[in-house]
Amino acid sequence: MFGINGWEFVIIIVVAMLVIGPERLPTYAEQLGAMVRRGRDLLQNAKARVDDELGPEFSDVDWSKLDPRQYDPRRIVRDALLDDSPSEYPRPAADGAVRNGMSATSAGAAAEPGKAPYDDEAT
């Protein structure tokens, strides 16, 4: 609640009692309660009105997925790096390795159709 812990709330209440005084405190507490109830009613009415105007097709939308605070770049990169899906592109063959029955040097000369030739001696 607004970043206030229990002890800070107690201190605020004690200071309010001392500043306002015991004779006016019940009146102000009643006004504060009425203001909170009125604010809660306004928010509920606004939510109901938005739901009515948007219609039933938006009633099942998970709005928490659209929260911009969830898009942490560190989490996105970590999830992408830990993804176990196989790579779409094969890794190039190492020096002296055999790929598709050809050595790495001859594989660059006769690349597969649709793929760029790989030359391990290129700089």
Results as ranks from 00 to 15, higher is better:
D83H: 06
P73R: 03
N45H: 07
F2C: 07
R75D: 15
Y71K: 10
V14K: 13
W7R: 14
D120I: 14
R40P: 00
T123Q: 09
D79N: 12
P113S: 14
V61N: 05
F58C: 07
K47E: 14
Y89K: 08
A16P: 03
V98R: 10
N45D: 14
A97I: 00
E112W: 11
S64I: 00
D119T: 03
L81S: 12
G108F: 07
L18V: 15
G55C: 01
R99L: 08
T27A: 14
I12P: 00
P117Y: 10
S103L: 01
E112M: 13
D41V: 06
E23F: 04
V77C: 07
D51F: 02
D60H: 10
D67A: 04
Y28K: 15
A97V: 04
E112P: 05
R74L: 05
K65T: 12
R91N: 10
S103H: 00
A122T: 00
V14Y: 09
D67L: 04
P92H: 13
V10E: 10
S64P: 01
I4N: 05
A80N: 09
S64A: 08
P73C: 02
R40V: 01
P22D: 11
A107E: 10
L66I: 04
T27V: 06
P26A: 09
A122E: 14
M35A: 15
F58W: 09
E57F: 08
K47A: 14
G108I: 10
E23C: 05
I12Q: 03
P68M: 03
L81P: 04
G33E: 06
D119W: 02
A111H: 13
I76F: 02
L81W: 05
A29F: 06
G21D: 05
P26V: 10
I4D: 05
I13N: 00
F9H: 08
A80R: 12
I76Q: 06
M102L: 12
E53D: 12
V10R: 08
G108K: 03
G33D: 06
A97D: 15
I20L: 14
Y28I: 10
V61C: 09
G33K: 09
R40G: 00
N5E: 11
D62K: 04
D83Y: 03
P90L: 05
